[in-house]
Design a protein around this nucleic acid. Structure first.
Lengths: 223, 223
DNA sequence: CGTTATACAGAACGATCGTTCGTTCTGTAT
DNA sequence: ATACAGAACGAACGATCGTTCTGTATAACG
């Protein structure tokens, strides 16, 4: 391969992490296995782990990549909307859409990671918690803007609104996926809109997906 | 006075499962390990697995026991309240309390299991989903009663209310635990009350009744 | 050109996984 | 007194875990 080495390495590692994100979104960050991931990528275990040092560093890289993916498809795309309720409304739509369209094959990555590390200590716990805190801060900031602009009930605490939105999206997406009811996400969306005082739905579903997409990716538990 | 053999066996298995529930609420149902659990119980791996047949059956037994524990401390204790909004209010309080008082050392058991199996197929997935469906049906039934009695907005869909309550409790408890903020559960409670149209809080925390004290039996090593 | 650094494969490590044997012990029934 | 059933043990199975070491091919540099 006459590829330039640094580029090849960087790109290769990027692809590695992307594949690991998909796998970990199903199996969990803790269920990630060097042997299985290496086999899926067609490389040796030593070659794979050599890119990260050890497994925990690999998990951290995977987590960071998943957060970046979420940030890109939800936060970044909402930046063009004016701060406040309007941006909050767009965030909710993008948030639900990213769940509906299987940006992560196994459902919301950070939710999975949150459950895995909510009762443990260590580097992964800290990084997951930090990511959730950052996201809550974003939501709180927008909620505060909305409240200051009079678009949100003056009695509503921005931090409480942020926490409520996060709880609904996190818990609701899991339940919708577990029960195999894509319509559950409509309920989550409605509840999130209710949480910020928006009407159940605006005119038509402007972000309507063409088909329900029954893509249920499932992995055999064993062999 | 020699105990009858079947009784002794049942009790021993019950203690085994109770310990496994505590362990699995932290490590996850999938993170349960026969070797580690056996070591913690002071028995051999073969002796432990012999009680269930294989690991999956043990996981199923652990899941069933956890569901039973939840049912006891939340559903059963709310039965004395009149059906409808009043019972729903009590359920919310008991629900939050069971999270606050660490009925499960690692947080809500079914939430953990939901995340673990929401993207997989098999027996465990089906049983978790069935448990969630049963619980949603209970909540929906109470919400319908409340609506029919005029205690809930006539425009509120009981199934949507049930789903919203479940999502809030599930997602909120994880976030509160992950962030290490017990006050987060107050937010969850407030949001759940808001979901059923109840005022943020009734007077003071009237639900500071003595700890429910779930049966937490400690197993003693065999002589 | 030679030298050096890097990336990966291959092999092996100790540990642990779930499972399966054969044995032993205990209590009950015949 | 004998036979049997159940539970648990200890040992071992093959598989897989994360990690480490060594050899080698290639790319980068002078």
């Amino acid at each position: 391969m006459p590829r330039r080495a640094p580029a090849a390495v960087a790109e290769s590692r990027e692809q590695t992490v992307a594949a690991a994100v998909d796998l970990a979104s199903i199996e969990g960050l803790e269920g990630l296995t060097i042997g299985r991931l290496a086999g899926q990528l067609g490389m040796s275990k030593s070659g794979l782990i050599g890119r990260f040092g050890d497994k925990e560093s690999m998990q951290a890289a995977v987590l960071a990549a998943a957060i970046e993916r979420f940030t890109e498809v939800v936060w970044a795309r909402a930046q063009h909307a004016p701060a406040g309720l309007e941006r909050l409304e767009l965030i909710v739509d993008l948030w639900i859409d990213h769940l509906r369209e299987d940006v992560f094959p196994g459902g919301c990555f950070v939710t999975t990671a949150s459950v895995e590390y909510d009762a443990r200590s260590g580097r992964l716990h800290d990084e997951v918690a930090a990511a959730v805190r950052r996201w809550l801060a974003v939501l709180e900031s927008e909620a505060r803007r909305a409240r200051d602009a009079g678009d949100l009930g003056a009695d509503r605490d921005p931090a409480a609104v942020a926490f409520e939105l996060h709880s609904l999206a996190s818990g609701g997406s899991v339940a919708a996926r577990l029960l195999g009811e894509p319509a559950g996400l409509d309920r989550v969306r409605a509840a999130m809109r209710r949480a910020v005082g928006l009407p159940p739905t605006t005119a038509a579903r402007r972000r309507s997906s063409p088909s329900p997409r029954p893509s249920r990716r499932r992995s055999a538990p064993r062999a």
